[in-house]
Design a binder for these strands. Structure first.
Length: 271
RNA sequence: GGUGCUGUAGCUCAGCUGGUAGAGCAAUGGACUGAAAAUCCAUGUGUCACUGGUUCAACUCCCGUCAGCACCA
């Protein structure tokens, strides 16, 4: 009847080695006006991006739809101390309970990107929210509801279409093998649970953030809040949450593969 | 030692009076642009514990074996 193509696990991308000095020279020569570090959760992208930014004389622009909220620290894994002396942007820019979105991100990114460049520094976009990354690197026009360019970043169409967004982007992806990724997710979850994540939910709830809003933020905010509300047992919450984060990481990879399929070149590195 | 129950997809389990098997969860692939850590779509060949028997045909009936559980000794 029909060819039932059964889903085969996507092969792991071929790891590459990115020569930082070479990249630095290319940026100086105007070949790129943004470096983007992306990857699934728990792949080590923040650590990598910070080291990269330091080597390039850059500043980080976070592309994380949840780290924008103040007071949501443990559950989003902000790890602000990891940045050290490297400046970061778009973290803690909205109140918990507020409704941030892609459109605001595009505007905020644009301002941060222009600001960093105006000071002669290198902007490094880093995060795991694929939608946000695509909205500013592939470009998207919220007026016409259409992509600014459906081609790869091999020309300057986007630049011409919207000078407020970068035209040429160098993408680096942090690579982790599936099993290892899940192991890290589980270990990190236990660490967060042990370091006050439940307390964080109670504090947010006490500060007036509605439970329904917190739950709508998903993952840790969803399951831990349900636990605090007594809707889930602790062990049950832990199991469901771990599974949900594994699924989330898979969805992130699906988005990145989609970017590659549409022509974006991502240099995957092992960290 | 005896009796009873159970043994089916990674997990929990359905499979009426026999016609080689399905649901949920998980997993995998995909979609996605003003909530995206959200939302949605697609995909199920497994020695039906093992052996023998009855039958045109057994996961489904019968004998036995093994394993787990419960109860009685």
């Amino acid at each position: 009847m029909s060819k039932s193509r059964k889903p085969v696990p996507a092969p792991l991308p071929e790891p590459e080695v990115v020569d930082i000095q070479e990249l630095k020279a290319a940026i100086a020569a105007g070949e790129y006006d943004l470096v983007c570090v992306l990857g699934p959760t728990a792949s080590g992208k923040t650590r990598y991006a910070v080291a990269l930014a330091r080597a390039l004389g850059g500043e980080i622009i976070s592309a994380d739809s949840r780290q924008v909220y103040r007071g949501m620290d443990i559950g989003t894994g902000k790890d602000l101390e990891e940045y050290g002396d490297v400046p970061y942007h778009l973290i803690d820019i909205a109140d918990a309970g507020e409704q941030y979105n892609v459109h605001r991100f595009q505007e905020d990114f644009s301002a941060a990107w222009a600001d960093i460049r105006s000071r002669g520094r290198v902007p490094v976009l880093c995060g795991g929210t694929g939608l946000y990354i695509s909205a500013v690197t592939a470009g998207y026009d919220f007026e016409t509801k259409r992509p600014l360019s459906d081609e790869s970043r091999s020309d300057s169409q986007v630049c011409a279409a919207n000078p407020a967004l970068p035209g040429k982007v160098f993408f680096i992806g942090t690579l982790v093998e599936r099993e290892e990724r899940n192991r890290r997710i589980d270990a990190r979850l236990d660490e967060r649970l042990a370091s006050g994540m439940v307390e964080e939910m109670r504090t947010l709830l006490a500060s007036g953030v509605p439970a329904a809003t917190l739950i709508s933020y998903g993952l840790e905010y969803k399951f831990v809040t349900q636990y605090v509300l007594g809707e889930l047992e602790f062990a049950q919450m832990r199991t469901l949450l771990a599974t949900a984060i594994h699924q989330f990481a898979k969805r992130q990879m699906t988005w990145f593969r989609g970017m590659e399929r549409s022509g974006v070149k991502i240099h995957w590195v092992e960290v």
